[in-house]
Design a protein around this nucleic acid. Structure first.
Lengths: 251, 251
DNA sequence: AATCAATGTTGACATGGATCAAGTCCGCCG
DNA sequence: CGGCGGACTTGATCCATGTCAACATTGATT
């Protein structure tokens, strides 16, 4: 099951090969990088992001308290972001899929404040933060993009806060599924038929519920014909009805 | 009670007077601005932040969906940050006190994603975002500072997520009080004796609870001798015990 | 094939917090 | 002064979710 990532090339890639896969060829560049870069600018950014790193399933890309020397763009696979409190509580604060950035929370203190764990064999592009920061000072478009990404992460987190603060179990699950659906569709995947990369436990942590409650919420939505679930395979049978559930609770 | 802010000068300030109160004289500059700026750099930053704006109690500094043309530093007073969902839910995502920034969430989309409401008559420094961004490109110290602030906001939000995801009512209230306490002490105020600026309703929204539950949690902590509360006046009688409550729940 | 550990589902029951309803304490305003 | 509304507290009850336990499924190991 947990086999090495070997989809793009034979066994162990050589460094020279890794370097060849640039941002220009990457279908995700429109998610990671700003539009409107000149060729020269693009090349300078690309030069910074030449390093890749593979992370096997259940391994960490970085740990809490580890010094932050780079941020990461998910190239393939999926991660969960977990924060840990002083007293040992653990909380999933989000999942990161291809084209999304990881490690932005480490900029403030210079150390990562959360742990990024691969949910499947994954690969990330390494972005040395000091260097991208220096380059951003020279390329306004890049600078603006970086600020936008940071700000969007704030907005995303506030969305999670709203979910936790105002929604019941069923609504939380629906919000979660619709959020996944939306992000998948942006990436060209089906918004109504997908496989969950994360366990019920990870979902329940993000949603601030127990796994039993999440399981029952899945079952109820299934019984009502709104979704189909078998294990990790989810189909949204009535996306409109799901969205409607998030608006006025009953009537 | 709700009188205008007139502590620093007679009745209605003239613009020329407002401009005189620069960052140099502001005791909060160490919170808003980076250390290590040269005199020249400091002056350039200061020149950008010369505008002030007063916001009366219960008035909004900005509204959701309003175009974001500036970010703000709280000079005096206190704000609540509220996000609203499409379906009309409202959620307080945090409170901002003197020296803290407001409006960072608007950078991503160019429009504010939340509403900032003054909890008392307050004053903010207006920071035109485009200009501070441009200046940051020229002053690395400033750029780094800006990134840190953005990142810290992410970390702060993740802390709220953890609170909502893992704590019970009493723990949430304790976490909230200790957080306030800490921020007040940084500003030179007593960490164990303070006045709440926000209503029980605002607190309950942030904590994802009802006002009744918040009220009962206050009462219980009071009965246990951990705090003293009369209305908005709170005293932490046993901060160590409060902190201990956040660690291992029972034993 | 047998065993085992993870993972998820389902049921029965307990409980923390929501809901509903008074009631108190204010400051405010006529 | 008296009445009124808003903010908060307190009590009684209900219910959504947590807890505990059994069981199913799956894949890994032997």
């Amino acid at each position: 099951m947990a086999e090495q990532v070997t989809r793009k090339s034979p066994p162990p890639k050589r460094l020279s090969e890794q370097l060849q896969v640039g941002c220009q060829q990457c279908s995700l560049s429109e998610l990671c990088l700003p539009e409107g870069l000149s060729e020269d600018e693009f090349a300078r950014v690309e030069a910074l992001i030449s390093k890749r790193r593979k992370v096997l399933r259940n391994r960490s890309l970085f740990h809490t308290s580890e010094p932050m020397e780079a941020i990461y763009a998910v190239k393939t696979g999926c991660f969960k972001n977990e924060v840990m409190s002083a007293d040992g509580r653990t909380q999933v604060v989000g999942f990161s899929m291809a084209g999304e950035l990881l490690g932005l929370d480490g900029i403030g203190s210079g150390a990562h404040r959360c742990e990024a764990v691969a949910l499947e064999d994954s690969e990330v592009c390494l972005i040395p933060f000091n260097q991208i920061e220096a380059l951003a000072a020279q390329i306004p478009t890049l600078q603006r993009h970086l600020h936008r990404l940071l700000s969007r992460e704030i907005v995303r987190d506030q969305g999670v806060i709203m979910m936790l603060g105002t929604m019941n179990a069923e609504e939380r699950l629906i919000a979660f599924l619709l959020n996944l659906s939306h992000r998948l569709s942006i990436r060209g995947y089906s918004p109504v038929d997908f496989y969950l990369r994360m366990s019920r436990e990870d979902i329940s942590s993000l949603l601030g519920l127990t796994i039993e409650t999440v399981s029952r919420a899945f079952t109820r939505l299934k019984e009502e014909g709104l979704i189909a679930v078998e294990k990790k395979h989810v189909r949204l049978l009535d996306p409109a009805a799901l969205k409607a559930r998030l608006s006025t609770p009953v009537a």
